[in-house]
Each structure stands twice: as structure tokens, then as C-alpha cells.
Simulated assay, not measured.
Amino acid sequence: MRIGIVCGYSFDVPGGVQFHVRDLAEHLIATGHEVSVLAPAEETTPVPDYVVAAGRTVAVPYNGSVARLNFGPVSAARTRRWLEEGAFDVLHLHEPITPSLSMLALWIADGPIVGTFHTAMDRSRALQVASPLVRPLLEKITGRIAVSEEARRTVVEHLGGDAVVVPNGVFVDRFARAPRAEAWCGTDERPTVAFLGRLDEPRKGLPVLAAAIPQVLERLPGARFLVAGRGEVSEYREALAAYGDAVTFLGPVSDAEKESLLASVDVYVAPHTGGESFGIVLVEAMSAGAHVVASDIAAFRSVLDGGRYGALFPVGDAQALAGALVDALADREASAPVRRAASEAVRRYDWSVVTREVLAVYEMATGGPVHDDARTRTVVGRLRAALDGRTEDGR
């Protein structure tokens, strides 16, 4: 199958959506499909061979983060040319109503179109205003995917219609088999905790963790905190410098370093305060064997099955976070059953499973086989029947 994938967000500063697009493309290619990805990126930005760079972007604040988007007549011309040259069997648009390349492709393209919605939010005045304008465009999408129930709720409440849930994927074995780094490994005397995220985005929760660290060190003076990610946060560096080697800022880490970090530490902490539609880094940490302590937001609660596969604490509550960390670190062996259960549960998110579900949506969108089912009276019903069929026959 010839598959065209459009990413609305820039590969210059990649984030969760870009990594999702990259990994999906690579797994599709590995299973024999022809894939081309169109994405914003500067000409000097190194991108994989299958990515067509569409040029520079504009930074726009969005949902507690910064989205780097590409829009305008030049971008539209590049998108049109890519579509014509690609002659794709199916077009897969990520964040199709974000004013960037995905929306341009949706305007221009005809034929089978699949859209994946990644964003979750409670309220959005911008989406409420834009909804009547984009709904005619959304009618061109044959198959709608949401990466989580939270993302699906956003689609239903803000855009109308429905979507089938196909989660983000992880190469589980890469994390499960990652080599451990001695410098990051914990001991009974000096257990280790990792934080990974954009440091200068408050919603990632570094301020909450910074407030919890002194409380943890009062009870476990040997605990070590490894803080990784992009962004300058001099105020936290200065405040936490008083604790010496108990806190280490690692800066940005590569994919291989992230895998090794998560495989080495005792606990992964996710103190996010909101704006998350899934919780991919939780799945990565669970795959690597780390015990997860996460804030009790809906997306994380879903991944951790309400606390079955890790510990949850009230959002923004530094004291509760400190207590959860102490509980997890004080008796490292006590968390072993939870970690074992989590390492089995994450198999559901392996790219081998997720890609089969995406291909089932592609088949439905292109008129491929779908199991006869009463649910097939609606588009989303046909999608869910297709996914169930994939699960049953193992294809």
C-alpha cells in the first residue's frame, strides 16, 4: 500500500506527535508498505529519508505548549505537489484541524483520508469558534482515530461525530532490552528517580517535583533525582543546587539515552498538571521496568488502570507526591509485582499491535474487507468492527 502521512507539527523541535508519526512510518515501512511523510522542517534539519521537509514554521502557543506550524500559499503549493507525486492509496493526517500542513492537505486532497486526533482539552474557545468552519472539511475524512478516550472526548464535544480509539505506540522491546547505565542505577542506599519532559513547560510538572524533592530527602537522604529534557529553568537549578548530587540535570537526551535512563532508575515520576491526551512516556517507563508515580489526570489514570500499574497522586500536590515517592523508594522490592504486571500490560501498546489497528482503519477507508456486523451501519461502527476483526483473526 502507498501511504502518505502528514504531520502538522515541526520536526525541528520534535515532540509526541512527531515521534508517533516517525515510529508509525518506520513500522509500516518495515512491514512492506511504501510510506512518505510530509512535515514542517528547515532544510538544514536532519530528517529520515522518508520525510519530505516542507519548510520553516511559526511558533504558536497552544494547549499549554508551543506548536510550530507551517501554513500559507507556499506550503499549500508544496503540499499539492507532494500529493500529486505520491499518488497515495490512503492519506493519513495527524491533527487535521490544526492550521498547518494537515489542514492544507485536507483541503486539497481527494480519495481515502484517515485523520488522527492527538489533543485532549476540557474547553477551547478556538475550537468552539472554528468548529462550524471545519466540519465540512471533516466530512472528507473517511476514518477518524483518537489516540485515547480523552482525545476522543475532545473530538465528540468540540467537533461533533465520533472516532475510534487507537493508542499511541511504543517499541516495547527496545525499552525492555535497553542496557542499564551504572551512573543512573539505584541502590538500596541511593535509589534513583527520573523525570523526563520539557523543563520550561509548567504543565509537565517540574515545579511540583521541585517542591517535593526536599520532602523526600528529609526521609530518604540518599535518594537521587535525574532530570532530563529541553528548556532552561535557572530558578529551579539554583534552588535545587543546595542538595548537591541528589539532583542532576541531564539536559536533552537521545532516544537511546532515554531508553537506558528508564531501564536504570527505580522510579519514573510524571507530575504533569494537565493537557495530556495519553501518557506515552508512562508506557515507555513501564516497558523499561521502572515503577511509575504519576499525577492523577485522566490520561495517566487510564494508562495505569486506576493505579493497578503504578501509583497516582492528586494533581499539583507536592506533599502527596513526596509521600508516593518515599513509599516506592523505601521498599524497592515491594513494587516488583506492580512492575511485572505493568510490563505485561504495555504489550497492548506495542507498535506491532497498534500498526495492525491502524491498517484496519486504512482498509475500511479504502473499501477493504470489514467483518459483517450490526455496528457497520455507522462509519465509526465499521471502524470498530474492523479493529475487532483484526484482533480476532490476528492479521
Score class of each variant (00 low, 15 high):
365 A>S: 13
336 A>R: 14
91 L>M: 04
310 G>A: 06
283 V>I: 12
261 L>I: 04
69 L>I: 13
30 A>R: 12
22 R>C: 10
256 A>C: 04
302 S>T: 15
20 H>K: 09
61 P>R: 11
28 L>G: 07
303 V>T: 09
256 A>R: 15
334 A>Q: 10
32 G>P: 06
110 D>H: 12
201 E>C: 07
371 H>N: 11
122 D>Y: 04
375 R>S: 15
37 V>I: 14
16 G>N: 13
92 H>F: 03
16 G>C: 08
205 G>K: 00
15 G>C: 12
258 K>W: 01
291 H>P: 01
331 D>K: 12
331 D>V: 10
10 S>L: 08
73 P>A: 05
30 A>G: 15
15 G>W: 07
203 R>K: 13
370 V>E: 12
186 G>L: 03
362 Y>V: 07
288 A>D: 00
355 T>S: 12
232 E>W: 02
244 G>Y: 01
27 H>C: 15
256 A>Y: 11
210 A>C: 05
218 E>R: 12
366 T>P: 07
214 P>Y: 02
350 D>L: 02
175 F>P: 08
184 W>S: 00
173 D>K: 14
344 E>K: 14
228 A>P: 01
294 A>E: 02
150 E>N: 15
289 G>F: 00
354 V>H: 08
356 R>P: 00
188 D>G: 13
281 V>P: 13
126 A>N: 15
267 V>E: 03
240 L>T: 04
381 G>M: 02
219 R>N: 07
32 G>V: 05
10 S>N: 09
323 G>D: 09
266 D>T: 06
261 L>M: 00
209 L>N: 03
391 T>S: 15
127 L>V: 11
287 S>E: 04
383 L>W: 04
244 G>D: 07
34 E>R: 14
207 P>A: 00
324 A>D: 03
168 N>D: 14
228 A>E: 07
37 V>P: 13
36 S>T: 15
353 V>A: 13
161 G>V: 07
260 S>F: 00
150 E>F: 05
283 V>T: 04
363 E>C: 08
324 A>T: 02
321 L>H: 01
334 A>R: 15
275 G>C: 07
131 S>E: 11
86 G>W: 07
120 A>F: 00
105 A>S: 14
280 I>N: 15
224 R>V: 01
114 V>W: 02
48 P>R: 07
97 I>T: 14
79 T>M: 12
350 D>A: 02
376 T>N: 10
248 T>A: 11
253 V>T: 09
302 S>Q: 12
98 T>Q: 15
163 A>Q: 06
111 G>P: 01
326 V>S: 05
225 F>Y: 06
98 T>C: 14
231 G>T: 05
142 T>E: 03
303 V>S: 10
345 A>C: 05
330 A>N: 12
249 F>E: 10
82 W>T: 10
273 T>R: 11
248 T>L: 10
366 T>N: 03
257 E>T: 06
7 C>T: 13
225 F>V: 00
